[in-house]
Design a protein around this nucleic acid. Structure first.
Lengths: 186, 186
DNA sequence: ACATAAACTAAGCGTTTGCTTAGAAATATA
DNA sequence: TATATTTCTAAGCAAACGCTTAGTTTATGT
């Protein structure tokens, strides 16, 4: 009936995601996506609508990849200890050739403004809240009171957000020390 | 002998700095700077060379403005308590019309890559280290051992970096709770 | 008053941006 | 094998980018 697609949409989105992760949203042009994804601009727009569409799919792909470490946290039974492990796992997850790229979600929250990219921002904040809820779940295993759990979860999120930027400034040893300090009372 | 400048360079840089702070480096175009600074592109290039030059001067301006709160920290005598006050002061400093803009330095570290903007990045990391050294100075007043002081300083920097992003996501009440949690053992 | 030098305005340079379109190539059905 | 339908290539669109230049205005020293 017709010609077949010569590319796999999931496979090219993985490459797009990697590019957005390295360069940020605005600093990734459609021409760069074209080269990295290995397909023509026409195909990009046919498959994903526009640049924002490519990014929204990239977030889904990011979520899929990070499940490798969120699944561990979600199935953990050791309370805050599991969150600490997640921090170390995240550091490893965000690394590419000995270079830390931070978190794709955090990087983009920092870069974009809600007023100008409401759709993207909504997805990012939803994602961010999912991680926080994983922290809440683990903290509940250590039977703190509900209000304190929420405060602790926000505090830990703040440290995770910090790591996204700190990892571009500090050495691996320093980053590991920071994580140790974050969990020093547990 | 010649015509006088019709603008004050320090005054227009303040406006440029505010624009960079709100929008980030790449998302601030020379046309936007032109409007905000109230002078023609020719004047911008005559005074500051190029867009990077405008930004480098904006950092100097930012440093000058943030002295309002770093001076307090630098002259403090209450150890870590002064750092906690600095965190609250920073939150207020970063606010514009009930909207948190984060830290100009942190935002830009997160946005740009060292390989592509080495000059700007060098200034930003120098700036960032100055703040850390203020933390070290205050921590020394509480006589911890030297190695622990450095770890604590990095931990606090991580929380400050985190606040820059967290302030775009969380409410004022939550941000205040995060600061309380950061200093809970002091 | 006049010449001179700096600062102004505004138009425009080449390049890159996100996105579109015209037409050729390829494949599944009839 | 012929036809229909989709995907491909590659050229091109208007707008925005950082930056420059030609020509006018303004103020100062003589």
């Amino acid at each position: 009936m017709a010609r077949k697609k010569q590319y796999n949409e999931q496979a090219v989105i993985e490459k797009a995601m990697a590019l957005f992760w390295r360069n940020g949203y605005e600093n990734t042009s459609v021409r760069m996506l074209e080269k990295e994804m290995g397909i023509n601009q026409f195909s990009i727009y046919a498959s994903f609508g526009n640049k924002q569409g490519v990014f929204l799919e990239s977030i889904k792909c990011y979520r899929k990849q990070i499940r490798k470490i969120t699944d561990i946290l979600e199935n953990g039974k050791n309370g805050i200890k599991d969150i600490k492990d997640y921090f170390f796992n995240f550091l490893e997850f965000s690394k590419e050739n000995a270079c830390y790229k931070g978190c794709l979600v955090t990087n983009t929250v920092s870069e974009l403004k809600s007023e100008e990219n409401p759709l993207i921002m909504k997805e990012l904040l939803f994602f961010s809240n999912e991680i926080k809820q994983l922290f809440v779940r683990s903290l509940q295993q250590d039977d703190y009171e509900e209000v304190l759990i929420n405060k602790k979860a926000n505090f830990l999120m703040n440290n995770l957000l910090g790591l996204s930027i700190a990892s571009k400034v500090y050495s691996t040893k320093e980053l590991e020390d920071i994580i140790e300090m974050t969990f020093i009372n547990n």
